[in-house]
Design a protein around this nucleic acid. Structure first.
Length: 150
DNA sequence: GCCAACGTTGGC
DNA sequence: GCCAACGTTGGC
């Protein structure tokens, strides 16, 4: 079992959207490093839902990975903002997983708190210039965040 | 294969 | 809106 952190701008897709949808294909990852993490994901892994570029930045909840990785259909759709003309159906470039809602925190855990907590020292998301939209998280850090008293 | 220019991310 | 960080592109 592996643990992840997945970023989304809540104006595009938020934890509340996932509450309603229950399950959602996490489409649109177009960065090779992030794509490589997606390919390592397996059904049953756990992930933190992170809100970036918003009024309130931080971890908004938790989800589970609901599928193994499969080709992101938006890469083949010329009408999609995620369309990639270089990709071929026989050899897709971009992958995604389905995510399933698990938990919404009563209070979002702010990035500032993640930076301040010594128990969370070393988390990539708290490092300056950490733009990677899919990150690996240690079991220890994942459980600490999910169990933070609210 | 180098690296400058350019574009995007994302915190502030 | 600014700007640092950094990934990507393309000329050479």
């Amino acid at each position: 079992m592996n643990y992840w952190l997945m970023k989304s701008e809540p104006s595009a897709f938020s934890i509340d959207d996932l509450v309603r949808a229950k399950r959602e294909p996490w489409s649109g990852v177009r960065n090779f490093q992030a794509r490589n993490f997606i390919k390592e994901m397996r059904k049953g892994d756990q992930a933190l839902f992170y809100h970036s570029s918003a009024d309130r930045i931080g971890v908004a909840g938790a989800m589970s990975i609901g599928s193994d990785p499969y080709p992101d259909p938006t890469q083949f759709d010329p009408k999609s903002q995620y369309y990639d003309p270089k990709s071929r159906k026989e050899k897709p470039i971009w992958y995604l997983v389905d995510v399933c809602f698990e938990k919404k925190f009563n209070e979002l855990i702010p990035l500032q708190e993640i930076k301040a907590r010594k128990e969370l020292a070393g988390m990539l998301v708290a490092q300056k210039g950490s733009r990677l939209s899919i990150q690996s998280v240690s079991k220890k850090h994942f459980e600490f965040i999910v169990d933070l008293p609210e």
